[in-house]
Design a protein around this nucleic acid. Structure first.
Length: 491
RNA sequence: CGGGGUGUAGCGUAGCCUGGUUAUCGCGCAUGGUUUGGGACCAUGAGGUCGCAAGUUCGAAUCUUGCCACCCCGACCA
């Protein structure tokens, strides 16, 4: 079907770019490092948002909105936080433009310099904790469970559509609690929400774990994460949930009176997932024929393509097609009926295949006569002719099967790409030959972690939760270790 | 910021070395017709500051210099 299309094995990163662009998900904008999310791509993001938003609300959270611009001084209040973000902040210094002296262009009006510069948020902890100070006085005000859907800017040097862009969309949850235990429970609960979403909606299996000190969020006591494995064997951090301790409460002086009448600093968490999930979704399931979408996140789950010669046939075929569409919609299935006369059926088949529509139904004069439809599933590319009787149920069942199959396929792939290394030599060999997740003993030191990163480009993705304890020795230093950690090269 | 590369129609490109006057081809687009069960075909047509600026020259897409943008590799990416 495709002309000059890179396969996954030929050039994985080119393959990814092509899918994103040709499936109409996003494109580069006129602004360096910033993308335009196109309607079809944004529809997928909206599905993600809707599912996540419901999960957040079901766990007691509410949405709010905080400013895009943050006073510079806020960033100096939490030392490690500023250190983590300083290098990638966009700064607003002026508030007015004027016509240049030669009259030909527009220049910054130097007389309109801000007294204090404003930072375009790279994340919102600072402005939110500054606000929380005014909201929290007593344990009765806690917990505070707030989420925000927003855009953030991080001035990345090298960007890739969805995976790393200078501006991206995300949600950030910021909660405040009376005790450390409660905050830790919240952090873990939200990690579970993310894992649930990744596995049951995106059909992407993830590893739950905690980050090493090196990889921890700037300002966090503990960073929990979900890590996914892409088809090329590279890991992708798909979501993080941070236990912030009392760091931000202390930095922004947020205290409350507890039940015993004593003053204490509030305990905090923050957690987020971004449009990067779109990248994970694309890379997890797609093949050399284009995008493959899990039914639960597809903008439309079924496309119906009529096949006809002339207007008379179109009428009878359309009647049948629209009847089927209604029947499917009654089962809660989203359907697009494409009766455009400007494109031929073969063109439409290829188009929807590339866009990853889970199920395609073709119906022509022949089917109208026989009471059948041709049903093609995107994941396996199998086609079969089905009786129209109970078509709603049949397709609903098929969509469930596709969702399950995608997940199983992804799990199998991840298992194949997960290995254990007992020596540094073996470790390097696995990384170079098989890639993927590598379990290995590590002595727990930042030096060893750094050395491995420099020599192999692999980082510790996480220390898995519920990890099996086993005594061993670090593959690099030979020092004792009580458990294996997970390494991988990452996006 | 270092190393390498590329800028010609919406996209992909030929021409550049060796300067010569209507800038090539394909896709796409428009119109008409025939088509329509896996990316149709024929005919006609529209579409260009050759990245920008200066220079050399009778003459520049082509040579020179400067600038700009983008891509790849690295540094960077809680």
């Amino acid at each position: 079907m495709s002309k000059e299309f890179f396969s996954r094995t030929e050039n994985y990163s080119e393959w990814y770019n092509q899918i994103v662009e040709k499936a109409d998900l996003a494109e580069h904008s006129a602004v360096r490092g910033c993308m335009v999310i196109k309607p079809y791509g944004f529809a997928i993001w909206e599905k993600m948002q809707a599912a996540l938003d419901k999960m957040f609300k079901d766990t007691g959270h509410v949405n709010a909105y905080f400013p895009l611009l943050i006073p510079k001084s806020f960033f100096s209040k939490e030392a490690s936080h500023v250190e983590g973000f300083a290098k990638e902040c966009a700064v607003v210094t002026h508030y007015r433009l004027r016509t240049s002296d030669d009259g030909k262009g527009i220049v910054v009006d130097e007389s309109a310099k801000l007294e204090e510069e404003l930072i375009i948020r790279p994340t919102s902890e600072t402005i939110i904790w500054n606000t929380y100070k005014g909201w929290i006085e007593s344990y009765r005000d806690l917990p505070l469970l707030i989420n925000q859907w927003a855009n953030v800017v991080r001035w990345e040097m090298r960007t890739r559509l969805f995976l790393r862009t200078a501006e991206f969309l995300w949600q950030e949850g910021h909660t405040a609690h009376a005790t450390a235990e409660e905050a830790i429970a919240e952090t873990e609960k939200m990690l579970d929400v993310y894992a649930d979403f990744a596995e049951n909606w995106m059909a992407v299996p993830v590893l739950k774990g905690v980050k090493t000190a090196n990889e921890r969020f700037a300002g966090a006591i503990e960073t929990y994460c979900i890590e996914a494995l892409m088809q090329d064997g590279k890991a992708l951090q798909a979501g993080t949930s941070h236990f912030l301790g009392q760091n931000f409460a202390k930095a922004f002086d947020v205290k409350f009176t507890n039940k015993e009448g004593k003053l204490d600093h509030v305990w905090a968490t923050s957690w987020g997932v971004s449009t990067r999930l779109m990248g994970a979704l694309v890379m997890a399931h797609s093949d050399d024929q284009g995008l493959v979408l899990p039914p639960k996140l597809a903008p439309f789950q079924v496309v119906i393509v009529p096949i006809y010669k002339g207007n008379d046939q179109l009428q009878t075929v359309s009647e049948a097609a629209l009847r089927i569409k209604k029947e499917l919609e009654a089962k809660g299935i989203s359907v697009k009926y494409d009766d455009r006369d400007t494109q031929r059926p073969g063109w439409k088949f290829a188009e929807y295949e590339f866009k990853g529509v889970p199920v395609r139904i073709a119906i022509g004069e022949r089917d109208v006569q026989n009471g059948t439809v041709e049903v093609a599933r995107r994941d396996t590319k199998e086609k079969e002719s089905l009786q129209q009787t109970n078509i709603g149920e049949k397709i609903a069942h098929l969509l469930e099967q596709i969702q399950d199959n995608l997940y199983k396929r992804a799990v199998d792939r991840r298992n194949e790409q997960t290995n254990h290394a007992s020596s540094y030599e073996e470790f390097k060999k696995i990384l170079d030959e098989k890639s993927g997740f590598v379990y290995a003993h590590w002595d727990g030191s930042a030096e060893t972690e750094q050395k491995i990163k420099e020599e192999t480009k692999a980082t510790i993705r996480c220390i898995p939760l519920n990890n099996k304890k086993e005594n061993g020795t670090c593959i690099v230093s030979g020092k004792p270790s009580s458990q294996k950690v997970v390494f991988a090269r990452a996006y």
